[in-house]
Design a protein around this nucleic acid. Structure first.
Lengths: 337, 337
DNA sequence: ATTAGCACTCTCAATCTGAGAGTGCTAACA
DNA sequence: TGTTAGCACTCTCAGATTGAGAGTGCTAAT
């Protein structure tokens, strides 16, 4: 691929990204003063098409990049863009809160990213099931109710207000909780669920009602089917490729399926910021989309991801840069643990 | 309005509700064996159109009910339908949980209603701002973090994990919290926010960092812009009247605007189960919709609403019955306070 | 009061048309 | 050998036309 082809491919891609219209040779010749005629550009574009980097929607409209073309653009051609000062400030400010709740950070991150990029964003929270159980305890709320606090080894906590069986006092309850914590600390939440049928578990919680409470809690919060937060789903409607109701339905439907998202992520386990372009993704519902995803860490361990979903002609450079910054800041912010 | 006109209006309405196709005289004559000919039906329909109960989309298609027609149908013609046994069981089961969290109930209710009816549903939680402050306290989580629990006079609690200024011990913190609670119990959350600038408040919290924490908490949870939970928004796409992308955008956009929903509700403050049909609503974005809304109570006081949004040709009878049952059960369930 | 008959209106899908945009190819040129 | 001008060709898109189908309103007969 010689320099001129690269230049043309880059021009086609960037033009198409900003206009959503197939790019013709004449347009390019007029816009960029390369000193070559439309005919020459046509020849080059024909070569690029032969090489699989460009496609024609119809026999004689302009060209648009193929997935391979976008891939080449992202990997080789794309210029790095800086993140504006104001945006940077805004990101930093978001993570300065005194609030120490995982869920809150996840929500804020999703909103922030969608707002900055103008695309829908998804944040995948750390898997609760994979979290390591650390301790369990009850705090009195009133006569009948208590706050159940479960902590993981990572320093995250989940809490839930539950009603307490009449016949148990808070003191008894916490004695049980301490036993329980000692017994099961270090085990993953997923395994903990399996222990529910273990004799050890049932012997600790002889009280059936209480056992049911703990069980219900583990099951209701446990399964990772609410790991996902979506922000700005409707921004997808701003892009002309989604004027067809069925495409919209599929993409918005995807945003409601935690499983599909997890599946997609698991198929591309790379760390750092990566772009997944159209057909590179296994999930049918978003074949018309591209996804940029960035991992974030808690203590050197990748625990979740921040993602942006957009049309294939996404502003890759900008989005990737934003996600790089955001995921770093988020990782920093979660270091409280 | 004589009996025959009523019968015809009812038939047109119910046919249109289930088919989404304008109903013609011939169709009616064939389907119902009233012993009158299409021509007679036509005459009657012409009268009904003159009376404003029916309309013709185009000069010569069948008729569809006007908003006035739906109104008459809902108020006078509609037959009561029972809720199936299985559905009833499911509703009851949902509210038997030991979990005692308002937010959880709100979410479950929204999901439940959307699932049962097949329409999008919105649940409006009790206004936090209007809630009466009762007490404030801190529970230790670890060295640096504490759980801040705020309770209202209704017995509801919100909690949030926050980082604690180094220089304050938990004991000091809770001493302050107790002073604070004594001082401000009985004041609405909204007023509490205004007190933030009050000398009394600032004197209690001489520690600036702490004051900021409390303030941040009140502001972040306080404004009622997350009162609303939506479930099943995409079910609206199943109805053929929403095959136009712009209608979809408006309706789905409405679901993201807490303010618009509150505004709509405030314009129709009636208790119990009511239907709002198309143009009866003040909000432009949902002129193509009807809304059925039911209020729920905590201790004889209406605190929130369960709503179903659907096309104008909604299954009014069924939806209204479902909401009646659900809002009753929800009110019962919230009596723990 | 009801009904049969019929002309009329309107929608919808299919077909056709011309303008416009852009291409591929060929032959000429540097 | 690479580049370019010219031209025929292809395809889309919007607008106009057409015929079938559905349903009506009106009139005259029952």
């Amino acid at each position: 691929m010689d320099t001129r082809k690269r230049t043309i491919l880059q021009a086609v891609t960037e033009d198409y990204i900003s206009s959503a219209e197939p790019v013709g040779s004449r347009t390019l010749a007029k816009k960029y003063h390369w000193g070559i005629s439309p005919a020459t550009i046509r020849n080059e574009m024909a070569d690029l098409e032969e090489g699989g980097f460009l496609e024609q929607p119809h026999t004689s409209s302009g060209r648009i990049p193929s997935d391979k073309g976008y891939r080449f653009y992202v990997d080789e051609l794309m210029a790095k863009v800086p993140v504006g000062h104001k945006v940077l400030e805004r990101i930093r400010f978001t993570y300065q809160s005194r609030i120490r709740e995982l869920e809150w950070f996840i929500h804020q991150t999703a909103k922030l990213v969608s707002d900055i990029t103008g695309y829908p964003s998804i944040v995948l929270a750390p898997s609760w099931e994979e979290g390591i159980f650390s301790s369990l305890r009850f705090v009195e709320v009133d006569e009948n109710n208590a706050l159940l606090i479960i902590r993981t080894a990572d320093g995250f906590a989940q809490n839930r207000t539950v009603s307490v069986p009449q016949e148990l006092s808070l003191v008894q309850l916490n004695a049980l909780a301490q036993d329980f914590s000692r017994q099961f600390a270090g085990i993953s939440m997923r395994d903990l669920q399996n222990y529910i049928l273990d004799p050890l578990f049932t012997s600790l919680f002889e009280n059936a009602a209480l056992r049911q409470t703990v069980l219900e809690w583990l099951l209701s919060e446990g399964p990772d089917d609410e790991r996902m937060t979506v922000a700005g789903p409707l921004t997808i409607l701003n892009y002309p490729e989604f004027k067809d109701i069925n495409k919209v339905r599929r993409v918005l439907g995807f945003f409601e399926q935690d499983r599909a998202v997890e599946q997609m992520i698991q198929a591309h386990p790379a760390d750092g910021v990566i772009a997944l372009i159209g057909s590179e993704m296994s999930v049918d519902d978003i074949q018309d989309c591209s996804v940029v995803t960035a991992s974030y860490q808690v203590g050197h361990k990748v625990v979740g991801r921040v993602m942006v979903v957009g049309p294939r002609r996404m502003q890759y450079a900008y989005v990737m840069k934003v996600l790089e910054v955001v995921s770093d800041e988020l990782s920093q912010a979660l270091k409280w643990a």
